[in-house]
């Protein structure tokens, strides 16, 4: 009984002389193996060589400063509520007089932590942010020996003034068009 029409009848036919000495088959196999040596390599020598990442790759987050170097994040909690992995936690604080150069709004994030082991890099936080404060970047999260090292606080997330992270390529034409509209307070 045949279940499919793909079955083959096995024959026990005797090998010929050339088949008995195996050499032609070995040469044929070696030819295939050696031909692979001259093909283009599909791997790179990481970390000496890095693959080019897409500009819109969703990797390590950055908390942006505005053009005057003030923190944009106002600890509104929308990223945390949008996060499907519940990786983001924050504690808000009130800006004191004299701190206007550090924080944009009267409320700021005193603690802002992302658990990189929980994060699935979906980019919902970036979508939810009303202040354009958090962006994912085309950097990756480096490996670590300890779990504690993966809880990224503000020290690792906030960009520094001398090392700004460029996120302009992530913003689509429609977003940039929207940002030109000065009627919206957060565009000013």
């Amino acid at each position: 009984m045949t279940l499919t029409n793909r079955s083959k009848v096995v024959s026990n036919k005797k090998f010929s002389f050339w088949e008995m000495i195996y050499l032609p088959a070995i040469f044929k196999g070696m030819a295939i193996t050696i031909s692979h040596l001259f093909r283009k390599k599909t791997t790179v020598c990481y970390p000496e060589v890095n693959r080019p990442f897409s500009e819109v790759y969703r990797g390590l987050h950055v908390l942006k400063l505005d053009d005057q170097g003030r923190e944009r994040c106002t600890a509104c909690g929308l990223c945390a509520v949008a996060c499907p992995a519940e990786a983001i936690t924050m504690v808000a604080a009130e800006r004191k007089p004299g701190e206007e150069k550090l924080f944009r709004e009267e409320k700021y994030a005193k603690v802002y932590e992302i658990n990189m082991l929980r994060c699935i890099f979906c980019g919902y936080c970036e979508d939810a942010c009303p202040k354009e404060a958090i962006f994912l970047t085309n950097r990756t999260v480096p490996s670590d020996y300890e779990r504690d090292g993966f809880i990224y606080g503000k020290d690792k997330l906030v960009e520094t003034l001398d090392k700004r992270v460029d996120v302009s390529k992530r913003q689509t034409a429609s977003v940039l068009e929207f940002k030109k509209d000065k009627h919206h307070k957060h565009n000013q």
């Binding site: 509104c76 409320k107 307070k185």
Partner: peptide, 11 residues
Amino acid sequence: HPLDCPVCDQA
């Protein structure tokens, strides 16, 4: 009405 819902405690 200012659109400061991210700052406002009533949000």
